[in-house]
Design a protein around this nucleic acid. Structure first.
Lengths: 246, 246
DNA sequence: ACAAAAGTGTTGCATTTACACCCATGT
DNA sequence: ACATGGGTGTAAATGCAACACTTTTGT
């Protein structure tokens, strides 16, 4: 295999969203800078999962690669949402030190293409070869590396926008899920409360949400029916809409 | 003034949409490659308006700059919609020749950030210092330079998507417009027919479309009332919606 | 007077909203 | 038997889809 060369000015960053403990969470990676001589830790903080692209690789492939290396998952929802290229995006003090420590040129302008991904948190192994990854609830994200706070904000905006008009909420759940779980996903992502009966009526009209002959198990109450999403049916029945909001 | 240096691997391309002759059009620029020695024209084709960014410039500023240099317009609708970075995007034969002729490295990987812009075609001066720009109806676009056909396609998708949920159709019209003009814009962009009475009923509910005490002039029929869009009222009255399509 | 586009209302149907109680299961 | 969440229906208000004729102006 020919060794591939990394491009040093185009990178991708993935905002990996998961739904857990009734919250929307983001998968972040620890970044620790250790002083070479004293061996003391200078700082520890968190970054998005990201990497530079290979010269012969598309940005989509690079994003899938990052996602796979980090989570072991394939075939998950991934979408490009915005480019980040501010001239000062890597210019904070910590970030310059980090880049220098990493043998990189802190003055080289690096553009990063932001992707967001939705995964079912049940699937994921957080332990991986490349550093410790953690699920952090959106509400508890502190100051991240580089411009990653901004990237997360924009990803959330993109997610909210998209989930309102396309059926992607399912991607945050296991293949089989209950309607209450689905409703919770929408409530958490959109930050609104929804009426149970009305939500279910709406769902009822969507032919691509397939009720299964299967129920929840091991719950201390009436077990809920399980559903799954059929992309096939969705593609065949979707209509174009025309709103332009109030 | 300090001479600014151009970054040689990040560029922006603007898909400038205009509405004219009842069609959606794109502003394109002629590209002609002349053989240095024989002075013969090797080929002529069309490109989007675009340019590399300056090292101290944001991509948004670069896009506004391109737009201004080309149209003389300021304060127009402009939106980043996608990054284009395929490794082969500049590798067609014509494109390599062009880059070489232009003194650039045809093997350098260049990423381009796509923006789309909506302008009222009445405003624009197509003549400008940097080459001849032309309005080309979407339906008549042939093979463009680089990956610009793909960029146009994606821009159109982004526009259609956005115009369905946000009030941006007005941007393609003069400040004061009639309801029939507005309906035509929506019909042309979305490629559907709309019912006049239902369209006007819907409009009636949108408080941000302000009817003026002014009418069309110089038309050979009953003159229509003019309207204008109030972004103020829009921002104050907009509601968030929750659909997730059939 | 004619041509050309502006402007306007009704009806039947689908969707939204608001709202409260019984049911099935595990402990 | 009790706690927990699952599951269901109705009425009123609003929005949508389909449809045709009169009005105003310039020529």
């Amino acid at each position: 295999m020919i060794p591939r060369t990394l491009n040093d000015y185009i990178s991708v960053d993935c905002v990996i969203f998961g739904y857990n403990d009734n919250e929307l969470q983001v998968l972040l990676v620890e970044r620790t800078l250790t002083n070479e001589s004293t061996k003391e830790i200078e700082f520890t903080d968190l970054t998005l999962t990201g990497n530079h692209i290979y010269e012969d690789e598309t940005i989509e492939d690079a994003a899938y690669r990052v996602l796979f290396d980090r989570t072991g998952l394939d075939n998950v929802y991934l979408e490009q949402f915005k480019a980040f290229a501010h001239p000062d995006r890597l210019k904070k003090d910590k970030d310059r030190k980090w880049l220098i420590h990493d043998g990189r040129d802190p003055d080289k302008r690096i553009i990063s293409i932001g992707f967001f991904s939705l995964i079912s948190t049940r699937d994921i192994i957080v332990e991986s070869k490349c550093g410790i990854a953690k699920w952090i609830p959106l509400s508890e994200i502190g100051e991240l590396a580089f411009d990653h706070n901004q990237i997360v904000d924009e990803a959330l905006k993109a997610l909210r926008n998209k989930i309102k008009h396309e059926p992607i909420g399912f991607e945050l759940l296991p293949e089989k899920f209950t309607l209450t779980e689905l409703q919770n996903v929408y409530e958490v992502v959109l930050g609104t409360e929804l009426d149970k009966r009305n939500f279910r009526k709406k769902i009822g009209r969507m032919k691509y949400l397939i009720p299964l002959d299967e129920k929840q198990k091991g719950v201390a109450h009436k077990p809920a029916r399980l559903y799954m999403f059929s992309r096939d049916v969705y593609e065949k029945t979707k209509k174009e809409m025309f709103d332009f909001t109030v």
